[in-house]
Write a protein that binds this DNA or RNA. Structure first.
Length: 883
DNA sequence: GCAAGGTC
């Protein structure tokens, strides 16, 4: 059998391109975690069997070990010296691709060579070593690792790279390791300190996390800098003259060449001169040919700028739309830095694909028949070609927003192939004759007051210039060199100088790009971050207006240590890790050095925090003045206040303790019931919307789970729970294993979830639309509607072990004979109850399926709680109706 | 609950 060669790319699209190029399209493709393309070919002069697959970005990410994860017991300062661990990045919830790591180690089995086709940048080089680690290639004798260096994913470049394989560059990979460690330690240390300090002191900051980061903070800094410029702007009054002439009913306003004066009296003097004379003489006309070059190819950052400024789409939305257009085959890969097309690019073919489009098809035909120009040369970053339409679409197919974005991408592409845009700009200059005023008999332009009719031109799509007013100007010039002044306007004052507007998102993207803050893929994330943290708000025209919180933070850094919010902080880190990438400095020495510097900055920042706090004090209210009285503290038995602004929390003024509550919902007192474990009054949390779940929780247990390892025992890992538990997310009652408390999962749990490993729990306040919800997934089951009361009993069904429930039907609507209202039974085995229950929705079963077999559900009974049909119990997708 | 960087 031919030896096997495994090739790994950074994303599925590249794997496909490489396999297609090397196999000439003759390959077989099978679906693994990611697609695997297989074919036979030659490698280093020998016949081999190729397998080409990909990862999906980074395989690993860095974090602190578990013992540093607890905010309360970890001093943020210690994070600088803490170890860091690499662990497999958890795949996205809606992603069928499960696991990069296992996929790779499986595919690598039996392969003698590994060829790394990761993107040719530092991140790609870093992922090379992640792949090597996953495949175990490094450690096995007789196996060889190769790095393909390609400048584009064209067939030519792929073949060229194949013939000049090199070794992966450890230095570049280590530079990324260094950046990861520095970003993690600095970001997390500052974030935890700020969050604890300010959220522990003020009640209306309106952000769960007061985050800091070497990218997001300078991004915020740009917005605040502009805001402060606006606030400190001192307007000045100015005066100007605007004479009017009439032409065939048109009133034409002329601009004064002096533009404006800051002196009222002098302006008034000029005004009188002009008015007294009443005539203007045309002394010159200019006709300029102006040319605007056709654009180069479109890259991500430029797309984002136009999307924001012209289409009104934020970067996050724009990328989502672009991503969808890409996966549907309408445009090429949307994340690219390059604005230059590869030499081999098939313009004709791409134009051909657009030729039948009803909107611009005619223009495309014209370009094809009259000949198109090659795009202006841009820059080639060696990643992907510029963003280009791939096939024709219509608004009906794409929907409004995606269509607008697609339309721009098409028009930009057609623009790159069109002739340069040429247009003519006309203007004429006229002057008021100063003869009278200055007693000079002859016109002298040096002593005249000149006015200009502003150049008027209109560019039509496809660069045709129309301008009826140009003819008008010509007419004026030829036939009427002396113009009668129709009127003159000069208000007092005409106006005042205006401050700049708030930073537009598009300007911000440019600033970030210029200063090396973020990358094309991460710029939208950083902007989104500062919005979500409530540091800025996007207002009309997509302008970013900082909030009181955002301003206080930046002004605070400016007072304590301006470096912290200047863009240079990113370039400093970049410059340091570049030394590692070039092999000029040792990885660990650089990390140590940079971390040490930031540690010192951190210590100083903590010491000086009062300076920032003074700004917060002026702007925000202390916890003791915030919120409204809600429930009793179990320790001091005094009332605590609920502070509903993010992060939602309770504050006990007596104990000076904070108890975080689940986010994004309403919180009410739960019938003044108390938790048997700690005496705190129970609360009921309701998620918004008609289908929103409600559940009781004890504020103390929620923040300090009384039973260790709740996650492991019940498989309800915080991330997989459909309820976003949020900060301190410990244990709501639906996870509580208390054996006798009437609110615990043991008491309220009814049966195993049909779709995951969770337990269906009675929603105690769902009347009259009674229901059960799963304590782990989205599964929702409606119970008989309109019942007065539904409650669990202490009994279990002898047949399926579900909890027996008691239903008190409404007198008028009771389905029971003779108008009886009380009915007791098992919802699965009792014919009547079974006929009245209905599964509403449940989406997430596949994700949790792998937790199966760990015994939970009814908890102490393990599997026995799962339905009665033992024959079907192994199918996790079994619908509720199949029981 | 935290950073920034890949990608789906």
């Amino acid at each position: 059998m031919a030896p096997k060669v495994l090739m790994v790319a950074e994303k599925p699209s590249i794997a496909l391109a490489i396999a297609s190029a090397l196999s000439g399209g003759r390959m077989s493709t099978r679906r693994g975690s990611t697609e695997v393309h297989e074919f036979d070919g030659m490698f280093l002069g020998f016949p081999v069997h190729y397998k080409v697959t990909s990862v999906i970005g980074h395989v690993f990410s860095v974090d602190f070990p578990a013992r540093f994860q607890d905010w309360n017991s970890t001093n943020p300062l210690d994070l600088f010296d803490a170890p860091i661990v690499k662990s497999e990045s958890t795949p996205k919830a809606n992603c069928f691709y499960s696991i990069n790591l296992r996929h790779l180690s499986q595919e690598a089995r039996g392969c003698g060579h590994l060829v790394l086709w990761l993107d040719c940048d530092r991140e790609g080089e870093n992922i090379c070593f992640e792949v090597i680690e996953c495949t175990g290639f490094q450690s096995t004798a007789g196996k060889k690792v190769h790095r393909a260096r390609f400048s584009s994913v064209t067939e030519k470049d792929i073949l060229k790279a194949m013939n000049s394989l090199v070794e992966p560059n450890k230095n570049e990979a280590q530079a990324v390791d260094a950046r990861q460690e520095i970003d993690l330690k600095v970001g997390v240390a500052f974030t935890r300190f700020q969050t604890s300090y300010f959220n522990g002191k003020y009640g209306n900051l309106d952000s769960r996390v007061i985050s800091y980061g070497p990218c997001q903070t300078p991004t915020l800094g740009f917005c605040v800098r502009r805001h402060l410029q606006i606030n400190t702007f001192k307007p000045e009054k100015f005066w100007t003259l605007h004479p009017y002439i009439m032409y065939k009913g048109y009133e034409l306003k002329l601009d004064w060449q002096r533009h404006r004066l800051f002196d009222s009296d002098v302006t008034q003097m000029f005004r009188n001169f002009v008015k007294e004379d009443g005539f203007l003489k045309v002394i010159g006309i200019s006709e300029k040919q102006v040319s605007k070059g056709r654009p180069a190819g479109l890259n991500t950052v430029n797309l984002l700028k136009v999307a924001s400024s012209a289409l009104g789409f934020g970067p996050q939305l724009a990328m989502q739309l672009a991503e969808r257009l890409y996966t549907q085959g309408f445009i090429s890969y949307p994340r690219t830095e390059s604005t230059a097309y590869p030499a081999s690019f098939d313009y004709k073919g791409t134009l051909g694909a657009l030729a039948r489009n009803p909107v611009w098809g005619d223009y495309v035909q014209q370009l094809l028949s009259d000949g198109y120009h090659k795009p202006r040369s841009g820059t080639d970053a060696g990643d992907h070609p510029p963003i280009t339409p791939m096939s024709s679409a219509s608004e009906n197919i794409l929907g409004h927003d995606a269509w607008k974005l697609y339309q721009y991408i098409c028009q930009h592409f057609l623009g790159t192939l069109s002739p340069d845009c040429k247009y003519t700009s006309f203007s004429f200059t006229s002057c008021f004759r100063l003869a009278k005023a200055f007693g000079i008999g002859v016109h002298n332009s040096s002593k005249s007051i000149s006015f200009t009719l502003p150049a008027i031109f209109h560019m039509h799509e496809h660069h045709r210039v129309y301008n009826s007013l140009c003819y008008l100007q010509n007419y004026l010039y030829k036939f009427s060199k002396i113009l009668l002044l129709h009127g003159i306007k000069a208000y007092e004052p005409w106006g005042s100088t205006q401050p700049p507007d708030h930073l537009s998102e598009s300007e911000l993207i440019s600033l970030m790009e210029e200063n090396g803050i973020g990358t094309d893929a991460s710029i939208p994330v950083h902007i989104n971050n500062i919005c979500e943290r409530n540091y800025v708000q996007v207002q009309a025209g997509r302008r970013l207006v900082p909030t009181a919180l955002g301003i206080s933070l930046i002004r605070g850094y400016q007072l304590i240590d301006p470096d912290l919010c200047l863009p240079d902080i990113r370039s400093f880190i970049e410059q340091q890790i570049s030394l590692v990438a070039k092999g000029q400095a040792d990885h660990s020495l650089v990390v140590e050095h940079v971390i040490e510097q930031f540690k010192r900055k951190f210590i100083y920042f903590v010491k000086q925090i009062e300076n920032m706090d003074a700004l917060f004090e002026a702007e925000f209210s202390p916890l003791s003045d915030s919120g409204r009285v809600l429930s009793k503290c179990g320790k001091c038995l005094r009332y605590m206040k609920h502070i509903p602004t993010q992060p939602s929390r309770l504050y006990c003024g007596t104990c000076e303790e904070i108890y975080y509550t689940p986010p994004k919902g309403t919180i009410k007192l739960y019938k003044e019931l108390t938790c048997p474990l700690d005496n705190f009054e129970l609360l009921i949390f309701s998620m918004p919307g008609p289908e929103g779940k409600s559940f009781p929780f004890c504020p103390y247990c929620y923040n300090n789970p009384p039973f260790e390892g709740i996650d492991n025992i019940f498989g309800a890992s915080k991330s997989s729970s459909s309820v976003k538990l949020g900060k301190g997310a410990g244990m709501p009652c639906f996870l509580c294993p208390h054996p006798t408390c009437q609110h615990s999962m043991i008491s309220q749990g009814v049966c195993a979830c049909p779709e995951c490993d969770g337990t269906l729990v009675l929603d105690p306040v769902s009347a009259p639309r009674w229901r059960l919800y799963c304590n782990m997934c989205n599964c929702l089951v409606s119970l008989p509607e309109g019942a007065h009361r539904i409650s669990t009993t202490g009994d279990h069904c002898p047949e399926c072990d579900s909890t027996i429930i008691e239903v008190d039907f409404n007198k008028k609507t009771t389905p029971l004979k003779d108008g009886a209202t009380l009915h007791i039974g098992c919802i699965l085995c009792d014919e009547l109850l079974y006929s009245l229950v209905e599964i509403k929705h449940g989406k997430s079963f596949s994700r949790n399926a792998r937790h199966r077999g760990r015994g939970r559900g009814r908890g102490r009974r393990g599997h026995s709680g799962r339905g009665r049909g033992s024959k079907k119990q192994h199918d996790p997708r079994m619908s509720f109706r199949d029981f």
